[in-house]
Amino acid sequence: MNRREWGRRLLGAALLAYTALAQATETPVWALDEPMPLRARYLLVGPDGGAVSDEDFRGRFQLITFGYTFCPDICPTTLLDMAEALRQLDGLPVQGLFVTVDPQRDTREVLKTYTAYFDPRILGLGGSPELVARAAANFRVRYARVETGPDPENYAVDHAAGLYLLDKDGLFLRKFAYGTPPAQIAAEIRAYASGE
């Protein structure tokens, strides 16, 4: 085989690889008009300082919300509704989780006191800003720190509200919009549980 033929073969292989690559990128697994399914994975730090991940709650539904304790209105309402849904679902294996999007201010102690106020069964999860960012990205939860007043310490955090429901295998089932009545949330979880 001479040099020229090598060159041709190499070019051919490169073209073939390029075409395959182009096809791979042009043929998405999910149709473009359908939202990609949520990859509901997280690795965060729990109230006792140990790592907590989505895999720790296999066999239980997970009801998850993102927020921050400085939030005076949206987050308490969401957690109140979560607590009420848990109360109505008493007996069903459902884990309530509050993931902070403000890990700098929401220390473990702060989170523990905060979640216990609503329901001692709700766990507050935090960790390094990087861990929180990764968890939020997986849930496609966007958040952004915003200064609202003259004191930079009293910043607010814009964030996606609502509750995320995972099944007993940790797979994302659905999102409940902010303001969904707890009775409706409880009824849907009960329906999922009975339909297994």
């Binding site: 209105d73 966007r142 004191d151 996606a160 509200a161």
Partner: peptide, 19 residues
């Protein structure tokens, strides 16, 4: 320490609190 006038609105899928 402080009292501020605030509002909330939803934008880009995020709840935003503003002075």
């Amino acid at each position: 320490g402080t009292a501020e006038l605030h509002t909330h609105h939803e934008e880009d899928g995020m709840m935003k609190m503003r002075r």
